[in-house]
C-alpha cells in the first residue's frame, strides 16, 4: 500500500525533475513545501477543494508540464502498488485540479496581455 511518505517522495522527485518548467518566481528549494501540500491533499479523506488546490499551485508558480508530470507519476505509483481504485479516485480529483489550474493560467495570460497593451498604449501617448 502507498504510504504518505511514498506519495510525498514521488511528488517531490517529479517536481524536482521538472523544476525548469516552473515560473521564475518558484526557486526549486521551495518545492518540498509544495510536494507536502500535494501529498497531503491526495491522502486526505476529505481533501481541501481541488479547485482551490489548482489555483494555489498556479499562484505558487508551478508549470503546467510539472503538474501533468505529477499526475502521471502519482497514477503510475498507485498502479505499481496494485491500487487501481485509488488511481482512479486520485485521477478524478487531479482532473479538477488541472482544470482549475488551466482556468487561472488562461485568466492570467489574458490579463498580462491586456496589461502589456495598456502599458504600451500609455507609453506611446506619453512619448507623443
Amino acid at each position: 500500500m502507498t504510504t504518505s511518505t511514498d506519495i510525498y517522495s514521488v511528488v517531490r522527485e517529479t517536481l524536482r525533475a521538472n523544476s525548469l518548467h516552473n515560473a521564475g518566481t518558484l526557486p526549486p528549494p521551495r518545492l518540498h513545501t509544495i510536494a507536502m501540500q500535494i501529498g497531503q491533499f491526495l491522502l486526505d479523506e476529505q481533501p481541501t477543494s481541488a479547485t482551490l488546490m489548482g489555483r494555489m499551485l498556479f499562484q505558487q508558480g508551478i508549470g503546467l508540464k510539472s503538474l501533468l508530470a505529477v499526475v502521471g507519476a502519482v497514477q503510475a505509483d498507485y498502479l505499481r502498488h496494485g491500487e487501481q481504485l485509488r488511481a482512479i479516485e486520485s485521477y478524478e480529483l487531479l482532473k479538477v485540479v488541472i482544470e482549475s489550474f488551466v482556468e487561472h493560467q488562461i485568466a492570467h495570460v489574458r490579463s498580462e496581455h491586456d496589461r502589456f497593451r495598456q502599458t504600451v498604449g500609455l507609453l506611446q501617448r506619453s512619448l507623443g
Binding site: L20, G24, T25, L26, P27, P28, P29
Partner: peptide, 14 residues
C-alpha cells in the same frame, strides 16, 4: 540560455 535566465531569476528570488 532559457535555463540560464531561470537560474538567474531564481537566484534573485533566493
Amino acid at each position: 540560455i532559457e535555463n540560464g535566465a531561470r537560474l538567474n531569476r531564481w537566484f534573485l528570488d533566493i
